[in-house]
């Protein structure tokens, strides 16, 4: 049953990616700059050079033929060559390098989010309406409405420039250096995102704590810790896990700004550079990678939900 569910979702995901890549291709065709300008750079546009570039990159082919050629390449895992961001480098290689750094940043931030967001959300949920709850909820509101780039700049100034605790530039070599270089960006990312998690956890805890089975567990004289972890947290887990999909979507946008502030060569800054330089193969590749990661994460979240809550399995069986 689960296998059929996964297959159906993957099929829908591939269709979605196809549509997405076609839309982006159309958008790029509408853009004011042309790949030819990007390829020429500062060189004089002699007819021979223009002809050879047109021939090499198939720039004179009809629109649909160009899309078809790109698609055929992708099916053979060939994403083409970069035009202007890193001249002639294979897009697949650029993407995997950039994605590696973004994933490290994201993984670091995820650890921080889980360590901070869930305990704070639980605390606020238990202490509902009291001072602790109000302070945490207000903090979460500030964190959610704080633009990632503002937060990143403030952190960069306070801990990088003024206190000099962390490096302000570059990515570092070796594990320890990489961690210290990624700390400020990861904290910035985690702050923005844990606001969402705190709110979701708090609301889920409030719902769980008001159920009859909690009152009954208390009546039976179970210890508060046991009631909290074994009864409330277990039932609050599903909405919290579901919110991870939401967090990922927010993370993609925030990462772009944070990478930009800290000049990190990740997928976000790559996309930005490719978009402003009209580097068609790189834009297409980056959109594909980002789209696929959203689809796969949402699938993973749903599978986790299936594992956590037996009730959701019936929905899958009914073909929903």
């Amino acid at each position: 049953m689960v296998a059929a569910f996964v297959l159906r979702r993957l099929g829908a995901g591939i269709l979605l990616l196809l549509t997405l890549s076609f839309l982006v291709f159309c958008l790029l065709a509408l853009s004011p700059g042309t790949p030819l300008q990007a390829l020429l750079g500062t060189r004089p546009a002699s007819p021979e050079l223009v002809d050879s570039l047109n021939a090499r990159y198939h720039l004179n082919d009809p629109f649909l033929v160009q899309y078809g050629r790109w698609l055929a390449g992708v099916c053979a895992l060939d994403f083409g060559q970069s035009i202007s961001v890193q001249s002639d480098a294979p897009v697949g290689q650029i993407l995997s390098e950039r994605m590696a750094l973004t994933l490290q940043l994201g993984g670091y931030a995820l650890v921080l989010i889980l360590l901070v967001g869930i305990p704070l959300g639980m605390l606020a949920g238990i202490r509902r309406g009291r001072r602790t709850d109000r302070a945490i909820s207000a903090g979460a509101t500030v964190a959610i409405s704080a633009p990632a780039f503002v937060l990143a700049i403030v952190l960069l100034y306070v801990f990088g420039v003024a206190l000099k605790w962390f490096p302000v530039y570059g990515t570092g070599t070796g594990f320890a250096e990489r961690v210290s270089h990624l700390t400020l960006p990861a904290v910035a990312l985690a702050t923005v995102l844990s606001g969402i998690l705190v709110r979701q956890t708090r609301a889920a805890m409030l719902t769980a704590m008001s159920q009859d089975y909690i009152t009954f567990a208390r009546l039976r004289g179970l210890s508060p810790g046991r009631v909290l972890v074994r009864y409330a947290l277990r039932n609050a887990a599903l909405p919290v896990v579901t919110s991870l999909g939401l967090i990922l979507v927010a993370a993609l946008t925030s990462t772009l700004f944070i990478e930009q502030v800290f000049s990190l060569p990740g997928i976000g800054t790559l996309l930005l550079a490719a978009v402003t330089n009209n580097d068609v193969p790189v834009v297409q590749g980056a959109v594909l990678v980002l789209g696929a990661s959203v689809i796969l994460t949402n699938l993973a979240v749903d599978l986790l939900g299936l594992a956590l809550d037996p009730r959701t399995r019936f929905a899958v069986k009914d073909g929903a």
């Binding site: 982006v24 958008l27 790029l28 509408l30 853009s31 004011p32 700059g33 979507v249 927010a250 993609l252 946008t253 772009l256 996309l271 930005l272 978009v275 402003t276 009209n278 834009v283 959109v287 980002l290 959203v294």
Partner: peptide
């Protein structure tokens, strides 16, 4: 609603020249 809004905006606005 399911799209990462600001990222879409960056792509569209960036490609069309800002």
């Amino acid at each position: 609603y399911a799209l990462p809004g600001l990222l879409v905006i960056v792509v569209i606005v960036g490609v069309l020249g800002g």
